[in-house]
Simulated assay, not measured.
Amino acid sequence: MGETVLYVCTTCRRDGDDPEGPRAGARLFDALRVRAEGAVDLRVEPVECLSVCKRPCTVAVAAADRWTYVYGDMDPAVSAEIILAGLAAYAATPDGIVPWRERPTEFKTGVIARIPPFPAPRPFPAGTPEAAE
């Protein structure tokens, strides 16, 4: 099926975060990294910012030839298992679209964006120098 990548915003801050301690996004990343250790075809990547500061904690899931999803409002203390279950459903689809009724509640209420798969390159029109190559 190919690799699924989970991007986790490590700069997300939630109300009540200890200013001296790790931010909520970093805590979520740590929880996901530990729970996903050894998972086949899943890569958990920290990112500096997903620009969804009003909906912390935020993650994005992407894979080749599949829709990309961005989810927010995740709880760093309890969301890791929920996210991983949602990713398993995502990975089991041919296009990344999990039927609504099969999505975890947190994915239904936390969805921020759905982005189409990256388009295939267009062939160069006949008669252009690029087409001759």
Rank of each mutant, 00 (worst) to 15 (best):
P116Y: 10
P117C: 05
E106W: 04
G21Q: 06
E81S: 15
A26F: 11
E37W: 08
A77K: 03
V8C: 03
L42C: 10
D65L: 08
R35I: 02
E81R: 14
I112A: 09
V40S: 15
G96I: 00
T93S: 12
R66M: 04
R43L: 13
A64H: 14
I115V: 15
G2I: 07
G110H: 01
S79T: 07
R43F: 04
P121I: 00
W67V: 03
P119W: 02
P119Y: 07
A60N: 02
I115H: 12
C49G: 02
P129I: 04
V78H: 09
Y90H: 01
T128A: 01
I83H: 08
D17R: 03
I112Q: 10
C9R: 06
F107I: 08
G72S: 06
V44P: 02
D30Y: 05
A120N: 08
M1K: 09
A91T: 06
V111Y: 01
S51Y: 12
C57K: 01
R35G: 03
A91Q: 09
I82L: 07
C53A: 06
Y90T: 00
L32F: 06
F124S: 15
D41S: 12
E102H: 11
I115T: 13
T93N: 13
D41V: 00
V34N: 08
G2D: 15
E48P: 00
I115E: 03
F124G: 05
A36W: 05
R13C: 11
T58H: 01
P125F: 07
A24R: 03
L32G: 03
G110D: 08
A131Q: 01
T11L: 14
E37N: 12
A39P: 05
S79L: 07
A131V: 08
D30N: 10
Y69F: 13
C9N: 07
R13D: 10
E81K: 14
R13L: 11
V52S: 15
C49W: 12
M74T: 02
T68P: 04
